[in-house]
Simulated scan of single mutants.
Amino acid sequence: MGRGRVELKRIENKINRQVTFSKRRNGLLKKAYELSVLCDAEVGLIIFSSRDKLYEFGSVGVMKTLERYQRCCFNPQDNNNERETQSWYQEVSKLKAKFESLQRTQRHLLGEDLGPLSVKELHNLEKQLEGALTQARQRKTQIMIEQMEELRRKERELGDMNKHLKIKVSHELSTFDNEGQSYRAQLPCPWNSPGHNTTFPMQSNAMECQQEPILQMGYNQFVHGEGSSVQRNMIGESSIHGSWVL
């Protein structure tokens, strides 16, 4: 016959109770260890006997398991803040490491702190500098070409503007000459009359046309050109108050 089901209740016999405690304690500790190994679980076990003796087991340490238990169960908000703080701390650490690496690379490109570098690292640095120099020269050439094209465009614009101004000035001069000729043709001067000799200079004819009578005290002394038929008033030919003026 099979063994019957044992009723779970406190063992009254002190000796039997102690023996049962020892057997089942060892079995429980064994099961906890097997669970942590087989399932890769974090297991923590604490046992207090009736005589206040402590028995414990922790796969990663009982104190660490208790701290984790407290963070997860009693202070969830603090746990979230701690996780967020830890995440930010890791991010800051990564950025700081990257910043230091960039600073170190910049110093190497400037020719500083080259002592710790090996031959291979110096060769790679030389390649980087040559590549950067090539790109800088290409960019400089491109900018110079663009500036030359811009100057040529401005030169063409100024040339077109100059041609336009020349045509405009020529048109204005021709218009001014035509108006001057029309105006001279309308003047009532002797050279406009038929039969007038136009071989005389324009300036003298204009002066003759513009002469007007002048009131003058004393005597007039007219001087004509050589070969003129008009007599010249000589000194002493006119008298004032009946006496000759020398």
Rank of each mutant, 00 (worst) to 15 (best):
S87G: 12
G44S: 07
V60T: 07
E34C: 00
M63A: 05
S49Q: 00
W88K: 15
I46T: 07
F57C: 00
P76N: 00
K96R: 13
R51E: 13
K31A: 03
Q77I: 14
I11D: 05
N81H: 11
K96Q: 15
L54K: 13
Q86H: 09
C72P: 09
N81R: 13
V37N: 01
R24F: 02
S93E: 15
P76Y: 01
R83K: 13
F74N: 05
L95T: 14
Q18T: 12
A41N: 00
K53Q: 15
K31N: 07
Q90H: 14
K64G: 02
K23F: 10
E12K: 11
L45M: 06
R71N: 08
R25S: 07
L35Y: 05
N13I: 03
Q86V: 02
R71I: 04
Q70F: 12
R24Q: 06
T85L: 11
I46A: 05
G44A: 08
A32M: 09
N81E: 14
K96D: 15
I11M: 11
K96V: 15
I15R: 09
R17A: 12
G27E: 07
N16P: 00
E34R: 01
Q77F: 11
T65F: 02
S22Y: 08
W88P: 13
E34A: 02
K23N: 10
Q70D: 14
A97R: 13
T65A: 03
G61A: 05
I11T: 10
E67Y: 08
L66A: 09
R24V: 09
K94T: 15
G61K: 03
F74H: 08
L45G: 03
G61E: 02
N16V: 07
F21N: 11
E56Y: 08
L35D: 00
Y89I: 11
V62I: 15
T85W: 07
V19D: 12
V37S: 04
D52C: 11
L29V: 05
K30C: 08
Q90E: 15
V19P: 10
N75P: 00
V19F: 13
S93I: 10
S50D: 12
F21L: 06
V37G: 02
L54R: 15
E12W: 04
S59V: 02
E12R: 09
R68S: 05
M63V: 02
N80P: 12
A32Q: 06
L38N: 03
K14H: 02
A97W: 08
V43Y: 00
E34S: 03
R68L: 10
K14C: 03
Y55G: 14
E34Q: 05
M63E: 01
F74W: 06
F21K: 05
S87R: 14
C73Q: 11
L95E: 14
G44Y: 01
E12H: 05
K30M: 03
A97F: 09
Q77M: 08
L45P: 08
R17M: 09
N26W: 07
Y69Q: 12
V60E: 15
Y89S: 10
S36Y: 01
D40A: 01
R68F: 00
I46R: 04
S36I: 01
T20N: 06
